[in-house]
């Protein structure tokens, strides 16, 4: 019952985000979406996933979205909303294919799902003796799937390098002795220097 309610709220929030023009409200709603998703994971007993979703989805990514909003405008540009048949058909077909794909999957919590017949019992029975930690999720993530977690950490690293390359390029100017963040035009400075050399008085208000 409670998961149906949560799913309903999730759908409503998603539709709300789609319809909103106010980007600040949309960012807030997407944070709410993450919080609802985290509650849903919590109901499904996936505590670690819920934790991550709450911290990353509802916390940091909302902050990053707000920081982005501070740079751009708060309102989405008004556009004519018209239904284009081509893309709509494509989206519907993809969605139908995805739903068709889930039909073969075992239902949530089925005892005879393949993962519950050999893998999960092995982790549950052997990992306390073999690895140790009472939290089996940690043993799976850090020990049994240590390669995967290494890969994930590398992905985070690579993402940061990408963002640094795209957005962190201003340091080059600063290292060259020129701080572009001051917002001063180079030509203006040259003009002032030239005037000074000519012994002219500086116009008022200039640095």
């Amino acid at each position: 019952m409670i998961d149906i309610l949560l799913f309903a709220f999730l759908m409503l929030t998603a539709l709300g985000i789609l319809r909103l023009r106010d980007l600040f409200a949309a960012a807030m709603l997407s944070s709410l979406f993450s919080l609802l998703a985290a509650s849903l994971f919590m109901v499904m007993d996936a505590v670690d996933v819920a934790f991550t979703e709450a911290a990353v989805g509802a916390g940091i990514s909302t902050i990053l979205m707000l920081a982005t909003l501070a740079i751009t405008k708060r309102q989405e540009k008004a556009r004519k909303r018209q239904l284009r048949p081509g893309p709509a058909l494509l989206v519907l077909a993809c969605g139908a294919m995805l739903i068709y794909g889930t039909l073969d999957m075992p239902h949530f919590g089925t005892a005879d799902a393949p993962v519950h017949t050999y893998l999960a019992p092995r982790y549950l029975e052997v990992s306390p003796i073999e690895v140790g930690p009472p939290n089996i999720v940690t043993s799976v993530l850090a020990s049994y799937r240590g390669y995967d977690t290494f890969g994930e950490t590398t992905v985070v690293f690579a993402a940061a390098v990408g963002v640094l390359l795209l957005l962190g390029g201003r340091r080059r100017f600063r290292d060259a002795g020129w701080d572009i963040t001051m917002g001063v035009d180079l030509r203006e400075v040259q003009e002032i220097v030239a005037r000074r050399q000519e012994g002219l008085k500086l116009p008022e208000g200039d640095p």
Binding site: I60, L64, A67, T153, V156, V163, L167, G168, G183
Partner: peptide
């Protein structure tokens, strides 16, 4: 993992917060 994620998150926030602003 903790060290990398902390540093990445702080870096990303600083980059976004200090982006595109003159002065």
């Amino acid at each position: 993992v903790g060290i990398t994620v902390t540093a990445v998150m702080i870096t990303l926030f600083f980059l976004f917060a200090g982006r595109g602003l003159r002065g």
